[in-house]
């Protein structure tokens, strides 16, 4: 239990008025200080590589998108915003989406699609503004989702760097299932390290 002792107020503090005058002088001085509000439409947002905006399909240098309509992003999407109809193509990748829609009103910008994509086809862009006059206009199809790789370079490099960090990290031993030491019921790597050859 904490016992908070009330501060003994001095006479001037108990009279209110001097303290009020002090407070008033502070607020008056602060009136002329620099404003911290960002004037948004005139002053654009500061966009960094970690800015996670709306998902976009990266257009490669040959003018095509890398998507093979595997459906992993569709499955990963927690908001069910992505709809994909796959189809075949004569290009070397053999499959491409006939339809790739993202309902931007459902999209929560979580970035799971970017993480799920095995072909580096979808990335979160730095576009954040989203407004239109109808709901239908905000269901983006392939053409609306296409964005040249040059414009997404920063984000792509950032994601690759993050992925490389995980790729290079030593793989932690799987402690359940096939890889677990036989008969051991260790629940943490530390416990496993202490008793590596139990039984």
């Amino acid at each position: 239990m904490v016992i908070v002792k009330r501060k003994e107020l001095s006479l001037s503090e108990r009279l209110y008025v001097p303290e009020i005058v002090r407070g008033l002088s502070i607020t008056f001085r602060k009136m002329f200080e620099k404003k911290i509000t960002r004037q948004y439409p005139e002053e654009p947002l500061v966009k960094t590589e970690v800015t996670r905006g709306q998902p976009r399909l990266v257009v490669k240098d040959d003018g095509a998108i890398a998507c093979v309509s595997c459906g992993l992003c569709e499955a990963a999407c927690p908001a069910y915003a992505i709809t994909i109809d796959g189809g075949e193509t004569d290009r070397p990748i053999e499959r491409e989406p006939k339809r790739f829609d993202i309902d931007m009103l459902r999209c929560i910008l979580c970035g799971f699609c970017e993480e799920a994509c095995p072909k580096d086809a979808i990335f979160m862009s730095d576009e954040l503004e989203l407004a239109d006059y109808s709901r239908q206009a905000l269901v983006y199809d392939i053409e609306k989702l296409k964005r040249p790789a040059a414009a997404m370079r920063r984000r792509i490099e950032y994601v690759n760097r993050i992925n490389d960090r995980w790729r290079d990290a030593p793989r932690p031993p799987m402690l359940v299932g096939r890889d677990a030491p036989h008969g051991a019921h260790a629940h943490s790597p530390a416990a496993a390290a202490q008793r590596p050859h139990a039984s």
Partner: peptide, 10 residues
């Protein structure tokens, strides 16, 4: 306006 200025707003 005044309340905004006193709170560093516009």
């Amino acid at each position: 306006k005044v309340s905004a200025w006193m709170q560093f707003r516009h």
